[in-house]
Design a protein around this nucleic acid. Structure first.
Lengths: 139, 139
DNA sequence: CTCTGTGCAAAACTTTTGCATAGCC
DNA sequence: GGCTATGCAAAAGTTTTGCACAGAG
């Protein structure tokens, strides 16, 4: 892969400035430094980086896919209220891989765990106290 | 929600005939019984059913979203070779929910775990023996 | 009769792609 | 200089939506 100023900015946006952005968000961010960059280039580079395993693609229902420069196994918490996406490490993830192989013979290569719900901030803003654990999400 | 012949067929396709179909696949299936149904109606009904919690939406990278009539917490195994999607129960899923709430205060409402890799059939077809566990996926 | 759901078609949105040119090595 | 990456714009794919009409309650 030959160097390009554009790819550098894209990777830079992903690692330093933006957190789990959509392709459009990356485009808007890089455009500040390189006004002539095109959205097609952003997509081409993001796809390349995903193919090389440098960046991870997060599929989300509705809205476009998001991209993540962290490639170690981790889950994503997406708040349905404020839309932010948080990272979460959990040793159980790799344990699931092992369970899957042992019980079904399926060899896991890539995992995407997207948990949707309400983040602590939004819960607090709505005056919900999580110490009285509800069975299901209050709507 | 008022009854409609179309919605009945869509739900029927989801529960009896199709396994994790895309909206287009549902459309093609229902069209056999109701040639005049429109794709817009399929989308409108799928969205309604998801909103009511009757059906689950599975976001996948590339290709369109898929729909699943099983709403209990379970993971999906998607084979990158044959494209099939399998269901998987795993008690660890709910355990992760509890971990998340306890450590981050995030209240999980919906979980999507998509594991991608190679199914047992495709592994066998490629002559790969899983008893000698590889560290990473053979490409 | 009223109000929701439908069919059709246009539109919105996301992502990919063909082609001539610019830029890395 | 050769070959890859880019910019632009068109196209492809997916999902939503406006509107007049059909159908359920």
């Amino acid at each position: 892969m030959k160097y390009s100023r554009q790819r550098e900015s894209i990777l830079n946006a992903l690692t330093e400035k933006l957190d789990h952005p959509t392709a459009e968000m990356v485009y808007q961010c890089v455009k500040k430094e390189q006004p002539n960059i095109s959205l097609g280039t952003v997509y081409r580079n993001l796809n390349q980086l995903v193919a090389q395993g440098v960046v991870r693609r997060i599929a989300t229902p509705t809205s476009g896919d998001r991209f993540d420069c962290r490639i170690d196994p981790h889950a994503h918490l997406m708040c349905s209220c404020c839309g932010r996406v948080f990272d979460l490490e959990d040793g159980l993830l790799l344990e699931i891989d092992r369970n899957v192989l042992a019980t079904t013979g399926f060899l896991v290569n890539d995992r995407q765990l997207l948990l949707r719900g309400l983040c602590a901030d939004c819960l607090a803003r709505q005056g919900i106290d999580i110490s009285c654990l509800p069975e299901d999400l209050p709507e």
